[in-house]
Design a protein around this nucleic acid. Structure first.
Lengths: 117, 117
DNA sequence: AGGTTGTTCAACCATCCGGTTGACAACCCG
DNA sequence: CGGGTTGTCAACCGGATGGTTGAACAACCT
């Protein structure tokens, strides 16, 4: 479970953490500011932020006694790349299937055994 | 949690499940075929598939005693939309920040209080 | 110096999760 | 019919996870 991709997906699997990310997309915030809307303890939110930080989705910079939390956009790309890769493969496969079916309709007399390269 | 997005992210947080998805992107497969490469029991893989199915990432069609598993590409869009939305917001914010900094350099004499709409 | 504020650490608890083994249903084939 | 495949269900186990409370600590403000 140490690989980044797993950590990122796991981090975003929690609705509270996704909401935190959503809010950080518009503005940086401190831990207590982030905790305010939820009816859980500040410590719980601090834990959530630790998870997000571990996944590289967020960084903290200490500003006096406050910790300024801000979103790190780059890690999103890792996810997007993974998703897009397999989505595209899957779509291409369906198109290939459609093509095969279309060809089967076109010339159903010719026996075709190999697959399209 | 019961919301789809959480289920999809949670499903993809596991490396084995991601690998299954990757393999299904190129071809449908049966449960035992999918289980073959991993040194875990078939039951464990069956559980993984249940998770993927629950998340809507995969569907099974029964073919005699075999279950043909195939990837469902549409759910990927849900994720992609979520990710892209906040990634774009975050990027825009950085650009806005850059613009503000640039303007502060340009005309540091004019006092600007409101935010860009 | 002393109190308040902001954040984290530590210990604890309930639940979930990924794995196991064993039993069993459903189906093909001889 | 009976036996071998294929897949799921059930019960169980250890470890991770999300939450709690209580204490610690650092930095600010009088």
């Amino acid at each position: 479970m140490t690989d980044t991709l797993s950590q990122v997906f796991a981090a975003l699997a929690d609705p509270t953490r996704r909401d935190i990310v959503a809010r950080l997309a518009t503005a940086d915030a401190s831990v207590t500011e982030l905790a305010a809307p939820y009816d859980v303890s500040v410590q719980a939110v601090s834990k959530h932020l630790k998870v997000l930080e571990q996944a590289g989705l967020v960084t903290k910079t200490k500003d006096a006694q406050r910790r300024q939390v801000h979103l790190e956009a780059e890690v999103f790309d890792l996810m997007t790349r993974w998703i897009e890769r397999y989505r595209r493969e899957a779509e291409q496969r369906y198109q290939r299937l459609d093509a095969v079916l279309a060809q089967m309709n076109d010339d159903s007399d010719t026996q075709q055994k190999g697959q399209a390269s």
